[in-house]
Computed example of a mutant assay.
Amino acid sequence: MGSLSVIHQVLVGSVRRYSAMAAAGKGLLFRQLFEPVSCTYTYLLADTASKEAVIIDPVLDTANRDAKLVKDLGLKMVYAVNTHCHADHITGTGALKKLIPGSKSVISKDSGAVADIHIQEGDLVKFGNFSLEARSTPGHTDGCLTYVLNDKTMAFTGDALLIRGCGRTDFQQGCPHTLYHSVRSKIFSLPEDCFLYPGHDYTGQTVTTVGEEKRLNNRLTKNEDEFVKIMNNLNLPRPAQIDVAVPANLKCGIQD
Results as ranks from 00 to 15, higher is better:
Lys51Thr: 15
Leu60Ser: 14
Asn249Tyr: 05
Ala134Phe: 01
Val37His: 13
Thr93Gln: 11
Ala245Phe: 05
Phe156Cys: 07
His84Trp: 08
Asp88Pro: 00
Val207Tyr: 12
Asp170Tyr: 02
Phe34Thr: 06
Leu99Pro: 03
Ala87Ser: 14
Lys97Thr: 03
Ser131Gln: 07
Ala134Leu: 01
Ala113Tyr: 01
Lys71Asp: 03
Met154Phe: 13
Gly94Tyr: 02
Asp57Asn: 15
Gly94His: 00
Ile117Phe: 04
Ala87Asn: 08
Asn232Pro: 00
Asp110Ile: 00
Met154Cys: 06
Ala46Met: 11
Leu11Val: 15
Val246His: 04
Asn129Phe: 01
Ala160Trp: 03
Leu4Arg: 14
Thr48Gln: 15
Ala80Val: 13
Thr178Tyr: 02
Lys152Leu: 08
Arg219Leu: 15
Ile163Thr: 12
Tyr202Trp: 06
Cys144Val: 01
Ala46Ser: 15
Tyr18Ile: 13
Gln9Ala: 15
Cys252Glu: 08
Lys51Phe: 06
Glu224Met: 08
Leu145Glu: 01
Thr157Met: 06
Arg168Tyr: 11
Asp61Met: 02
Tyr202Cys: 02
Ser3Ala: 12
Asn235Ser: 03
Ala22Phe: 04
Ile230Pro: 00
Cys194Leu: 09
Lys76Ala: 12
Phe127Glu: 10
Pro101Trp: 00
Ile117Asp: 04
Leu45Gly: 09
Arg164Asp: 14
Asp47Met: 05
Ser5Glu: 15
Pro101Tyr: 00
Lys98Phe: 00
His86Ile: 01
His200Trp: 02
Leu190Cys: 08
Asp116Arg: 04
Asp116His: 06
Ile242Pro: 00
Asn249Trp: 05
Ser108Thr: 07
Asp61Thr: 09
Arg219Gly: 13
Leu190Phe: 09
Glu212Ile: 15
Leu250Arg: 11
Ala80Arg: 03
Glu52Phe: 05
Ser19Met: 15
Cys175Glu: 08
Gly211Asn: 11
Val37Gln: 13
Thr62Arg: 14
Tyr180Gln: 04
Ala87Tyr: 05
Phe30Lys: 14
Pro101Ala: 03
Asp116Met: 05
Leu4Phe: 07
Cys85His: 00
Leu73Glu: 15
Gly167Glu: 03
Asn217Met: 07
Asn150Lys: 05
Phe156Arg: 02
His177Ser: 14
Phe195Met: 11
Lys68Glu: 14
